[in-house]
């Protein structure tokens, strides 16, 4: 069970949130070409370790938040607003 500290609402149960995927993915420029868009839409690092990801507080403030979570221990190292550049631990 995760407890996620929403920057706006405070620590809440995982059941209030919806997962929204890898937050490291960047939309390419419109003219970046097929390969760049293929990688953007489909390919993921899918690391066994620290992962920067989006969650949405659907049963709370409904905002998107950024979370740094470990995909084996499920430890959460940092939570921030969408614009925050969160460091990933070593």
């Amino acid at each position: 069970m995760l407890r996620i500290a929403c920057p706006w609402c405070g620590a809440r149960d995982e059941a209030e949130f919806r997962y929204r995927g890898d937050a490291g993915v960047q939309r390419p420029a419109p003219d970046a070409g097929l390969d760049a868009f293929y990688a953007y839409v489909f390919e993921r690092d899918n690391p066994k370790g620290w992962h920067r990801e989006w969650w949405q507080h659907v049963h709370g403030c409904r905002r998107f938040i950024k979370v740094v979570r470990h995909t084996v221990t499920h430890e959460i190292a940092a939570v921030g607003r969408p614009e925050d550049d969160l460091a990933v631990p070593e």
Partner: peptide, 13 residues
Amino acid sequence: DGHNTYAQRGHLP
């Protein structure tokens, strides 16, 4: 469970 994980165990929700 709905989020990336390599842990072979599930969450209570």
